[in-house]
Every structure is written in structure tokens, then in C-alpha cells.
Write a protein that binds this DNA or RNA. Structure first.
Length: 445
RNA sequence: GUGGGUAUAGCGUAGUUGGUUAACGCGUCAGUUUGUGGCACUGAAGACCGUGGGUUCGAAUCCCACUAUCCACCCCA
């Protein structure tokens, strides 16, 4: 079969067979964020192009070659958000959230768009859980934000996720560092790979992250940013590490963590896995103290992170983590014969108006096939309805797990009878369903 | 943007000295007598073998191009 229209490159369909995985991480993420006092914010899918140019940075790859920009009528152009921070900060400024007291803690789950060549863990439309904290300057805020990301990862059940942290300083100390880097690498200019020769001019910090073996060897002895931090930045980074230790969060200082978005200052961090191929950064973030002012807000320190939901799910699958199983129907009504089918409609309605999850035959299956179907969809109970039952005013309800059957009256007391027998069992399963996330978190500690 | 791999039913696969109705597993549907699922058995539906050219008496199988997809570089979540 050939379909003429297929999904755009780099996009994904999530079929019913897979959504429950999304429901799982969405619940976990929401749950964690709210336990840390973050409130959800929802922002537009597209923004004025200038917003991203100013915040993400006009020299970054993201802005230079990965944005989906459309020109609407007239002169303004809009861009599908390539990340969530810019829009969130814009919204915070625009809605006066910065005047409501600090810290302002916001989270979101949204899709982002980047025109890249797809590969494992990299899509053109991908989904991000993000948190932004505004107005907190001290390192305790950085540590708390990292703790939030860590608690999400723990709750998913993931293992072997490495936290890397670094400080890239403030604009002042970074300028010094850039000078030092340039003069260091200039000695080896001829030996560097071609892309690195370019990077030397544009963004020397990127050289530290080159994959080429020769460049790596050269970079090994390059000056380290941490030696160039000003006193304030140094103290901040120290403070962060102390807090992480107090929280019992393992980390590794990695001077090569650089981040590709211009707005970062001081703290940057990544949670990395090696389980899903080359794109192993599950979560990345850091501090961006200058961004708010840059976007026209009253100057305020801020920090945040983005977590890639696809990558999270990929890693969870790789590690065989558990997902919240989808809920299945409470009772399947199997009717046979014209009269019973007609009468069953009313019975089904009564169950449904009580809040039960009910299914019944809509495609004309025989009784046996209905039983089979009920089993397939995981129905917990099946009620068989035929002429005999209608005449006698009571029907058998079968427990599909144990196979045992009991009589339930079809009269006024039907719902009462059913509830007497099964309500507690059903509620117990329902409760398990609702508390899944918490239960999960508990197991991991 | 650069490189490499792959392209056969809904899904996963088999199918090389090119040769009649393209095979298997899962799934779907229907049956295995009388009103009850999971197992087993039987049967059915479902593939223009990615697209377009070429070689040949004959191509899923060989050649070319294109497209899609995957992986990697780059970059990032």
C-alpha cells in the first residue's frame, strides 16, 4: 500500500499502543515540578522571530539554520519555537509575573521545532519539559533546580544518568577566558580540523568539545574556564557544589560542557546517558542572568533547563523501565439476540452514568467472539445478556481474571448489587492507577 | 549541509548461479456443532516485493537514477 501523504520528515506519530508511555512521563514531570513549587505556564507555539534571535543568539546554529520561520502577511515574521525558555521569559515579562514576588517558578511541557537532519534521539518536532526559575541569584537556586531534574529522572526509574556541571562565568570573566583560549589554540592552528579553525574565531569554547582525536589531545592542555572565573563566579560555583553535596546528588565537574545557546551564564549542566546513541543529553540547562534584561524586562537573575521527552522515553525503554499501564474497561456487556441487544442499551447507560468504564459490541460479533474481544481489551468483568437473563431478571457477571461468575439482578438494584460485589476491587485498581507516580517514586529511594 | 546502511502484507522477517499461483511468525477475521475468553487446531482476508528507468525470453533477485527511512558528523533536548 502506498500512501501519497506521509508525515513530514523528523516528526512522529504516537499511536494508542504508545501513548501510555507519554502519559507516564507527563505525569511524573508534572508531579515533580509541582512538588518543587513550580506552576505550569502555557505559551504560543510560534513567536515573533526577533525573540529567538535576541535570546538564543544570532550566531548560534539554532537561529542561523534550524528555525522554521514563516512570514505572515505584511512585514512581520513568526518562528515556530525552537526551545521554551525565550517564550516563557517573554510571557513572564509581558504578564507582569516579575512583579509578583520572587522566586517565580514556571514549568511547561511543549513541542519544539528545529530544522535538523533527524537521527536517533533527534527530531524536527520534539517535546520538552522545561522549568524556569526567575529572581533567585544564589547557588542554592541552581542546586534546587538540578534537584528537580534529578527527581524526575529518579522517578522514571532510570539508572546510570550522569550529571555534568560546569561554570562558564559571567560576560566579564568569559572575555578573559576567550582571549586565553584563542592564544592557546593559535599555537596549534595548522593542526586543528577545519571546523575548529572556524570555531577559533567565532566561538573558541566550542573547540573544547571537538570529537576529533587530534583536537582532543590539543584541547586536553587548554586553559580551563574555572581558572579564569572572577571571584563572584567562583564563589557561586563553589556554593552550587556544596549544595549538591548536601542534597546527596552525585555530579562531575566537566569543563567541556559548554551549551550552544548564547544566553547561558555561570552554571551550566547536563544529564547524560550513553544508552540511546550519540544524542545522549536527556536534560540540559543553566543560568541566564542577562536574558530578562536583554528581552526588555527589569533585570533579574534566572535559570532553567529543558528535558527532552523523546530521549527520556527512549532511555526508559532501553533500560526496560516501567510505564503506567493504560486503564482497561470495568465491565463489558455481551448481549446476544435482537431483544437483548436492544435492552442492553439501557443497562449500559445505567452503568456509565454511575461512572463505570463500559464497552460492548458495535460490530456485530457473536457471543464467543465478544468474549474473546473482551479478553483482548482487558475487560475486568463481563456481563452476558440474552433472553434467559431478561426473562429471569438476573444476569451472570464473570470475573475475567479468576473465571468465577456471580448473579447480578437486572432490576432497580443492579448497580447496587454490582457495587456491593465489585466496587472495592475496582476502586483498588483505580487507586493504584492514580497513585502510580507516587508509588513509583517510593520504590526508587 | 557531509558521509554510510536499509527499503518484501498492519508489525517483524525469509526469499543469491535471475525461472511458473512471493514464504513464515505475530496481529486481524471466521470456524473447531448446541449461550462464555485465555491454550490448541483449521481456514480466510491482506503485498502493484519504495518509485521510475535499463539489462534479459523472463527480475523481489543484476545495473542506474530518484525518493523515503535509519545511523553518524555537525548541533542540541
Amino acid at each position: 500500500m502506498s500512501i501519497s501523504i506521509q508525515r513530514p520528515k523528523g516528526t512522529q506519530d504516537v499511536t494508542p499502543a504508545e501513548v501510555y508511555k507519554w502519559h507516564t512521563v507527563e505525569q511524573i514531570v508534572k508531579n515533580c515540578a509541582e512538588r518543587f513549587g513550580f506552576k505550569e505556564i502555557r505559551i504560543p507555539t510560534f513567536e515573533d522571530t526577533g525573540l529567538f534571535v535576541r535570546s538564543v543568539g544570532d550566531t548560534t546554529d539554532v537561529v542561523q539554520k534550524e528555525m522554521y520561520t514563516v512570514s505572515a502577511t505584511g512585514d512581520s515574521t513568526f518562528t515556530l519555537r525552537p526551545e521554551g525558555t525565550a517564550g516563557t521569559i517573554r510571557a513572564a515579562i509581558e504578564n507582569g509575573l516579575l512583579n509578583e514576588g520572587f522566586p517565580q517558578k514556571l514549568y511547561y511541557v511543549l513541542s519544539c521545532f528545529r530544522h535538523e537532519k533527524p537521527q536517533a534521539g533527534r527530531l524536527r518536532e520534539f517535546h520538552q519539559f522545561g522549568c524556569e526559575m526567575i529572581g533567585a541569584e544564589g547557588p542554592a537556586a541552581d542546586a534546587d533546580l538540578i534537584a528537580l531534574a534529578k527527581s524526575v529522572i529518579d522517578m522514571t526509574g532510570l539508572k546510570n544518568i550522569e550529571l555534568n556541571i560546569n561554570s562558564i562565568g559571567c560576560p566579564k570573566c568569559r572575555a578573559e577566558y576567550h582571549k586565553a583560549l584563542k592564544s592557546y589554540f593559535n599555537q596549534y592552528k595548522d593542526k586543528l580540523c577545519s571546523t575548529c579553525q572556524e570555531r577559533l574565531e567565532k566561538n573558541p569554547m566550542r573547540l573544547l568539545d571537538c570529537k576529533s582525536e587530534e583536537d582532543k589531545a590539543i584541547a586536553a592542555d587548554a586553559p580551563v574556564i574555572l581558572d579564569y572565573l572572577c571571584d563572584d563566579c567562583h564563589a557561586h560555583f563553589d556554593g552550587l557544589q556544596k549544595n549538591l553535596k548536601l542534597m546527596g546528588i552525585d555530579y562531575k565537574v566537566n569543563p567541556r560542557i559548554v551549551r550552544g545557546l548564547d544566553y547561558y551564564t555561570r552554571t551550566v549542566f547536563e544529564f547524560i546517558t550513553t544508552d540511546i546513541g550519540a544524542q545522549g543529553t536527556i536534560c540540559g540547562g543553566g543560568r541566564y542572568d542577562g536574558l530578562i534584561e536583554c528581552l526588555g524586562g527589569k533585570p533579574a537573575p534566572a535559570l532553567g533547563f529543558g528535558m527532552g521527552l523523546e530521549r527520556l522515553i527512549l532511555t526508559m525503554q532501553k533500560q526496560s523501565c516501567e510505564f503506567m499501564e493504560p486503564k482497561t474497561c470495568d465491565i463489558y456487556i455481551a448481549a446476544m439476540g435482537e431483544r437483548a441487544i436492544r435492552e442492553s442499551i439501557g443497562i449500559i447507560s445505567r452503568f456509565r452514568s454511575e461512572g463505570y468504564f463500559v464497552e460492548y459490541d458495535l460490530v456485530g460479533r457473536g457471543l464467543k467472539a465478544q468474549m474473546k474481544y473482551a479478553d483482548k481489551i482487558g475487560a475486568k468483568y463481563v456481563m452476558v445478556l440474552g433472553d434467559n437473563e431478561l426473562d429471569s431478571g438476573s444476569a451472570k457477571v464473570k470475573n475475567m481474571k479468576t473465571g468465577e461468575q456471580t448473579d447480578i439482578s437486572l432490576g432497580e438494584k443492579m448497580l447496587e448489587d454490582f457495587a456491593d460485589r465489585y466496587y472495592e476491587t475496582l476502586m483498588a485498581e483505580d487507586e493504584m492507577f492514580r497513585n502510580f507516580v507516587e508509588a513509583f517514586g517510593g520504590e526508587n529511594d
